[in-house]
Amino acid sequence: MTKPEGEMTWKDIEIGAIVTEPGSGSQYQTGTWRSQRPTYEFNRCIKCGICAIFCPEGCIEENEKGYFVANLYWCKGCGICARECPTKTITMVDEEE
């Protein structure tokens, strides 16, 4: 994709709206759908990575300290990570206006 979707005009659409750039779906910011976001008490975290396995968006990444954290560009706030976390490290909180 030569431009972000929000800047593309109809003249930029490929034949049949075919997508020629692999993985271009990752440019789409699904984080704006979120009404809750995950927060972390890392002192309880055992770094098991279960949250990342269960995340339907695949947006949980391991950081440099070995903790697993959702990338809020894509996180839709579904809360599955918080529900599945065996040590209750993750708490969902409402997004403020």
């Binding site: 979707e5 659409i13 020629t20 692999p22 789409y28």
Partner: peptide, 12 residues
């Protein structure tokens, strides 16, 4: 590789 009939959100 190409993808055909992909998802198009309201922005596109």
């Amino acid at each position: 590789p190409v993808a055909m009939g992909d998802f198009a959100p309201p922005v596109i």
